[in-house]
Design a protein around this nucleic acid. Structure first.
Length: 108
DNA sequence: AAGGTGACTAACA
DNA sequence: ATGTTAGCCACCT
């Protein structure tokens, strides 16, 4: 099983209403510095995947997607629908990491 | 087959 | 405080 598959497997376990960061996912799999690869794995995800990609955000608590096929706006709405508070300030979506962070080391 | 690239991040200058 | 650099690794030329 390669890195991408590990990422998908882990992200699928994030419960609705909770979020994780690229770095935390990477750290849970192998190395804390592979955050970049996590992002790439999610980018490569097919449209009809069962992986909740919207629950993965940047470590800064912001949504880092700006102008791709899936804009930050869409991700923000998906999260709000799940009960996660998303605040828009200065064109950047912020999320309370302390409040919604899913501890990836508590595998269910 | 080998090298550039990217939804990141933390450490430095 | 803002800018750059290195580490990560599958995918696409």
């Amino acid at each position: 099983m390669n890195f991408y598959q590990e990422v998908y497997r882990l992200v699928r376990q994030i419960p609705a209403g909770k979020i994780a960061t690229y770095g935390s996912i990477a750290a849970a799999i192998s190395t804390p510095r592979a955050a970049r690869v996590v992002g790439f794995a999610l980018r490569a995800l097919p449209e009809n995947s069962d992986v909740p990609w919207q629950r993965v955000i940047a470590a800064s608590g912001t949504i880092s997607i700006e102008n791709m096929e899936h804009p930050a706006e869409e991700q923000a709405q998906l999260l709000q629908r799940e009960g996660v508070e998303v605040a828009l300030r200065d064109g950047v979506y912020h999320i309370d990491l302390q409040k919604y962070f899913w501890d990836t080391f508590v595998i269910q």
